[in-house]
């Protein structure tokens, strides 16, 4: 049998096999189109790739915070029922200033998960504003700085260089 024929046969067999396994499989899900995928493709890494259009300031964030966040996170982010978002002397050693190496993490998490009872209900402008507010409360940015897709990845978190991978050989 020539090489060409063997290759074709292998492909045909593979196609048959995959059709069979699809029939035997759990039958989960269906293909998603590019437009819908954008709603799910929410992860933002330190380089800020994928950050959406929008912007916000700490002052704008303060208004939203009072309405939607203060009930759990306390006045000025000092903490309450849930995690402190700003320095809370004597309350929590696990502060954002110490434990978040990139500001994009704050945007990523707030957008996908907050507020707790209505995740993903915030607009992109609101997420930028709240991120700006949290950064300002942590004295990382000034009260009048605007956070958007361009400025957010450039924010320098105070402990950016304080992390070390426990087992770098496992990466």
């Amino acid at each position: 049998m020539s090489m060409g024929k063997r290759f074709a046969l292998a492909v045909a067999v593979a196609l048959v096999a995959s059709a069979a396994s699809a029939a035997d499989g759990p039958g989960l899900g269906k293909p998603i189109n590019e437009t819908d995928l954008v709603l799910w493709d929410l992860s933002i890494g330190p380089d800020g790739k994928g950050l959406p259009h929008g912007s916000g300031t700490p002052a704008q964030g303060a208004v939203i915070y009072a309405q939607k966040c203060e009930v759990c996170h306390g006045k000025d982010g000092e903490g309450g029922r849930n995690a402190a978002l700003a320095n809370a002397p004597g309350k929590s050693a696990r502060t954002m200033a110490l434990y978040v190496p990139n500001a994009t993490t704050i945007f990523d998490f707030t957008r996908r998960a907050m507020p707790w009872p209505q995740p993903k209900s915030l607009t992109n402008d609101e997420v930028y504003a709240l991120t700006a507010y949290i950064l300002a409360r942590n004295k990382v940015i000034g009260e009048d700085e605007v956070m958007n897709a361009e400025t957010l990845p450039k924010v320098l978190m105070p402990n950016r260089n304080g992390f070390v991978s426990r087992y770098p050989e496992k990466h």
Partner: peptide, 12 residues
């Protein structure tokens, strides 16, 4: 992805 995203559950 090429680098870790630094999610909240691997930082905070």
């Amino acid at each position: 992805i090429e680098e870790p995203v630094m999610a909240i559950n691997e930082t905070m």
